[in-house]
């Protein structure tokens, strides 16, 4: 049964929100969420690559032979990732420095390959765009929420501005690697409790 465009979009925001429901793409979720800004930047980059690659894959889905489809997906995804990398270097250099290696690593993010294989290769262009935006925004929201949690407690700031004032002693554990795992675990737990029927 075909779903409507809105449904394709909305499913990415809750039912199939990547890091929490599908538990996919955890590497950037753990690594770049030291601050809200990083999370947002990473999310926007992923949205761009996801939407573009979804469009191209669904346009070419009748031409790409199924035996070499994975290779074709990777070529398409890698191209857009490098486009993002160059554009970020040219226009948002400060953010690019913070995200560093994790921008090129979007290539191997399983969300992108997963959406190309599981959705765009089987559906029309419009549905693929909706799917790309939905999943991408869902991914961004998760990055931003974990980033907010870690930045507020770990550094006492939100988006670079101080929340608790100068007397707050930052709980540095949160911005280090173990804090990322704890945050992710807590978020997964909350999502599961909230989604329990």
């Amino acid at each position: 049964m075909a779903k409507s465009i809105t449904q394709e979009f909305v499913k990415g925001l809750w039912d199939e929100i990547p890091p929490f429901r599908l538990v996919l793409g955890l590497c950037p979720v753990l690594a770049v969420t030291k601050s809200v800004e990083n999370g947002l930047g990473m999310g926007v980059a992923v949205i761009f690559v996801l939407v573009c690659s979804n469009i191209l894959v669904s346009l070419l889905r009748n031409i790409i032979p199924s035996k070499v489809r994975i290779a074709c997906f990777i070529v398409i995804i890698a191209t857009f990732v490098i486009v993002v990398e160059l554009l970020m270097q040219a226009y948002t250099y400060a953010l690019f420095l913070k995200l560093g290696i994790f921008i090129p690593l979007i290539v191997v993010n399983c969300i992108l390959l997963g959406r190309a294989e599981a959705f765009a290769y089987k559906n029309g262009v419009v549905a693929s765009i909706a799917d790309g935006f939905g999943i991408g925004i869902g991914f961004t929201l998760s990055l931003v929420s974990i980033g907010a949690l870690r930045e507020v407690f770990g550094n006492g700031t939100f988006f670079g501005t101080s929340v608790f004032g100068p007397s707050y002693q930052p709980f540095t554990f949160m911005v280090e690697a173990p804090g990322a795992f704890v945050c992710l675990g807590l978020m997964l737990c909350m999502m599961n409790l909230a989604g329990k029927k």
Partner: peptide, 24 residues
Amino acid sequence: VLTVLSAFSGGLLAAIRGGTKDKI
């Protein structure tokens, strides 16, 4: 298909790299 796709992506990247080089 693979050749055309790779050639196309190569061309696109070369163009974008040329356009952003000085800025970077």
